[in-house]
């Protein structure tokens, strides 16, 4: 199998790098690797209202030490090779703007790193522990384009803070004039 070889060498690489990493990081409430599967990638057909998993916060959000460690990982895992140093995008998408193909909530960014994406984004769920993925998410959040947890529904709708919303536009059912 040609597939097992790169994984094995990657595991070794990660093992060798693990020593220098994560000194003083606090223990986290990171979900187990299976948890991201509960986050839907698309809208839920036939349902409305809250999808609780989407509001999962990043345990490392705004943690300067974790953000710095995330930035180091961003370089060391070759993320910068595609997304550019600073995250401005190159071969891979811009991570600093507000356009998110697969969602810009912390758990959605976690998911994209964990699962990989079809247009070339590798899946890091086997190579990196949840702790490291959350630190990468913290770094991406620090770049300014990510969606705040409380805005998960608005982000799905393309709403922006401060915009006017017509009364008829709320909710999945258009109930007509509400006067």
């Amino acid at each position: 199998m040609t597939f097992s070889k790169p994984i094995a060498s990657l595991a070794l690489f990660l093992f060798l790098n693990a020593c220098g990493r994560d000194q003083g990081g606090s223990s986290t409430t990171a979900p187990a690797p299976s948890a991201p599967a509960a986050v839907p990638l698309g809208q839920i057909a036939g349902a409305s209202g809250s999808i609780a998993a989407l509001s999962t916060p990043n345990p490392y959000q705004d943690n300067p030490q974790a953000i710095e460690q995330g930035k180091q990982l961003f370089g060391r895992m070759n993320c910068a090779g595609c997304h550019a140093y600073g995250g401005g995008g190159n071969m891979g998408p811009d991570l600093t703007d507000t356009y998110w193909r697969y969602g810009g909530l912390p758990i959605q960014i976690y998911n994209s790193i964990f699962e990989g994406r079809p247009q070339g984004m590798p899946s890091w769920g086997k190579a990196l522990p949840p702790d490291d993925i959350w630190k990468l998410v913290a770094y991406v959040q620090s770049l300014g384009g990510a969606v705040p947890v409380g805005e998960w529904d608005h982000a799905r709708q393309g709403d922006r803070p401060g915009e006017y919303s017509a009364p008829e536009a709320s909710g999945p059912q258009n109930t007509g004039p509400q006067k």
Partner: peptide, 16 residues
């Protein structure tokens, strides 16, 4: 230049 490690199928680049 930033030192980089070889991870198959990711950029082996390092130039900022």
């Amino acid at each position: 230049d930033n030192k980089v490690g070889f991870i198959p199928s990711t950029p082996y680049d390092g130039m900022n």
